[in-house]
Amino acid sequence: MDRIHKLSEEVVKKFKNSGYDVNIKDVYKRLKLLIDEFKVPEDEAVRTVTNYLLKELDIPRDKLVVDSPLVKIADIGSPGQWISLKAKVVQLWDSSSPNVSQVGLIGDETGIIKFVIWAKANKPEVEEGKNYLFANVVTDRFGGKMQVNINKYSRIEEIDEDISLPPRDVDIVGALVAIQQNSGLIRRCKICNRVLTKGVCPIHGKTEAYDDLRIKGVMDDGENYYEVILNEENIKNLTGIGLEEAIELARKHYDREIVLSELKNKLLGRYFRFKGRRGERYLIVNDIEFLQYDEVEKAKEILSKIGGETIG
């Protein structure tokens, strides 16, 4: 197929997506004239022919939709991007705002994200558990989190695909690549259990407090990362340092920070197998242990995959 034929098909498809049939022979003839005879650059030629057809068929310009690129939810990183998504409606929330038609969560196999259908968008309602193409939606950041907004330029189409969601329960082998602030021997507010920063509860200010041990960290398996929270029990099982031992260590060195550096030395850079459940942001760890594996077996397995077609 020649280049001009391909461009013609794209133009025809663009109109078809918006509900208009145009004659491919006509499009081809016009493009060929512009590109071959008049040496007009391809994109200019396409634009010219598109404009001609819009005028000819009396189609308002905003009726002709060129869909934004189809992406996965995990790839959504910055606000203000026009994208398209194939996703399942996971949950619909009650909306208190008259400006919002529907709000909730949609998901694909890479992640789950909040969506908002504005009342002004004037779209038919989506249903929980059904799968849709959300074409031409806009990414946005709200309250520190990413979401997608469905506006009047967006299109929602039910699709005949069953989109799988990321598993809520995970069983992963990964390395602990970071331990974040507010880890180690911490103090919590006696009223609300929040972690104190420099002795101050974000809600109750200077308050009575108690000691606790926890790690906020990042597990990374080379393909994804998981923010995890390890509680006292997890930490004690792994390192032998529980709350009592941690308090004792801090007392001996007159330094609470020693607990954190001790835990970093014992845990950072190591591999773990952990089972847990995805929360809003953190993975709640049920069970975690240092990775145990059969070196020889794994090495042999890898060698058997090298070369040939059998890599997999």
Partner: peptide, 13 residues
């Protein structure tokens, strides 16, 4: 829901 504050994955190379 774990992708809101993006961090780069540590590649194995």
């Amino acid at each position: 829901m774990d992708k809101f504050l993006k961090r780069s994955v540590a590649k194995r190379v």
